[in-house]
Write a protein that binds this DNA or RNA. Sequence first.
DNA 1: GTGAAAGCGCTAACAG
DNA 2: CTGTTAGCGCTTTCAC
Lengths: 341, 341
Amino acid sequence: MNHKVTIADIARELNLTGATVSRALNNRKGTSEDTRRLVQDTAERMNYRRDRIAYSLRSGRTNIIGVIIPSAEINFFGSVVHGIESMANQHGYSVLLYQSNEQPEYEKKGIETFLSSRVDGILASIAKETTEFSHYLEIKERGVPLVFFDRANDSLNIPSVVIDDYKGAYIATEHLIRQGYKRIAHIAGQQHLKIFKDRLEGYKAALTAYGITVEDELVYFGNVSIASGRQAIQHLLSLSKPPDAVFAVEDFTALGAVKEIKDKRIEIPEAFGVVGFANESFDEHITPSLSSIDQQTVQMGKEAFKLLMELIEDKGDVHVQKRTKIVLEPLAAFRQSSMRR
Amino acid sequence: MNHKVTIADIARELNLTGATVSRALNNRKGTSEDTRRLVQDTAERMNYRRDRIAYSLRSGRTNIIGVIIPSAEINFFGSVVHGIESMANQHGYSVLLYQSNEQPEYEKKGIETFLSSRVDGILASIAKETTEFSHYLEIKERGVPLVFFDRANDSLNIPSVVIDDYKGAYIATEHLIRQGYKRIAHIAGQQHLKIFKDRLEGYKAALTAYGITVEDELVYFGNVSIASGRQAIQHLLSLSKPPDAVFAVEDFTALGAVKEIKDKRIEIPEAFGVVGFANESFDEHITPSLSSIDQQTVQMGKEAFKLLMELIEDKGDVHVQKRTKIVLEPLAAFRQSSMRR
DNA sequence: GTGAAAGCGCTAACAG
DNA sequence: CTGTTAGCGCTTTCAC
């Protein structure tokens, strides 16, 4: 472990001063072509690497962004982080990762750490348990750019990147209609979460658009789980006029539905169609393969980073005040569970 | 955006000097109880937060570790990162995340960034395409602690945390034997990768231990994919004495095998047993659910961080030279595809 | 117990 | 075109 090479070392080596070496290394104007080359070659030879800490202290920029996700163990977020990091890397930024575990206390601690680390900007997906948002507003007050992804809160007036849940639900429902299913049910999620509410709305809108009456008894309110999907099917099939298809609010719920339908020896997709939401990796491997709606996770990460970077670079500009919301298109991922034709 | 509060601000407010404030904030000895309390209260009131950049520049410590993974999109690594970040957070460290995309060029760039950022230590899983390791050795030369997880290279003499692939394969094969299967095949992976080689060895060892002769024709060398699993089954079933069970090197291969076996109308697990490796999330949702070997991903992340932290704190100690290798126990995750009894 | 002063490594003013 | 000086915010000697 040899002593770390600093600008001063290079300066000494070449009988120059630190300032000149710094200028040469950064290709600032005011250095002769000769010295610049000389300095850069020497730096290379001595294996010099700029100290980002010192650079940051002096310049006020860290080229680091903080990212808060509920958990890296959730596929969805791993995928978004993949998009974020790829794009960040491309633009010379590093990613500091923090998990909220769905708890506001962790969120707060993460934000503390990020601010203390002087990150240039923050990307965050709000924890499920969070109901009070002052810690996010503090980021704003500190003048640090912030962008929400996936889990946003419109009332905070903070830029965000989300997907169009309403439209995704609409597409899913429309697909079932076009496949000739006559009574289409919906297994809904908790309605205090906007994404689930939007999906219910999208479902209703599609039915209405095709002249089909929305029947309350065909909407089952579950809690987003495999068990909930099973219960929903049990209930729905017990109706005097049972449905012949279901759009589930999310893939695990759809999976539960599929399992229950199979247990009841009802043929999928011939006698019963199923569509989920999220395009989980298991979708294509179960039998029958599960139709779903893709949320463009990687793209979401990329867009979120790009938006954040714009905010970082426009800082102080009037622009920053402009509320921005990027809404991504959900994509159809239809498979056996709903393809009757 | 009000001006950021510094130690100097607090000192001015209290007619003290920065040195005293710093001591008081950090509970260093040499400050009266009174001033300490006063300073801490004032800091709280003024909403002071220590600047990590300045702290790092002065102290030489960042409390940041760098983590290199192939991709955050791969479940396995998301899970390990979850373990790493949880443990790091608990110990006051932050995680800087970098994806290698399986390419050595990215690895090098990530290492550059980490060293330049003065991370206190580095955790890495080697990229598949990497065959030359000088960039990793440079970390060592720089005196920065490094620990490999999952994908390690024993010849580099660098501490690592891995799972016992040999034993996992042994357990899987033994289980099939105990379930009464008589001719057990193995779909192997590329043998230049140590993990796959170890699994083949474990398979052979289990057979031998139970007095069963290892037959070369029952070992199919595939390339780790669904398609490869299907091909393997086609080949194995065409033998004059076909197997009645298979241990696949990894879950996607096992999945391909299951699909092919089902297509051939052979009953699983009655007429044919299947065990995979990795305990992928789809395992429990396919039909029949897939038996597998769990790799303790979260635990791996936690152990890796703990080991790294020890190295960071023992730095300069003789200890550091001691080669350390933590081998985690693979866990049985047996399900329908192999449970005949 | 507190203050004064120096310095971590870098860059930006200002001179020359 | 290059050097001198100062300072980012913090901690740590060394005095008093």
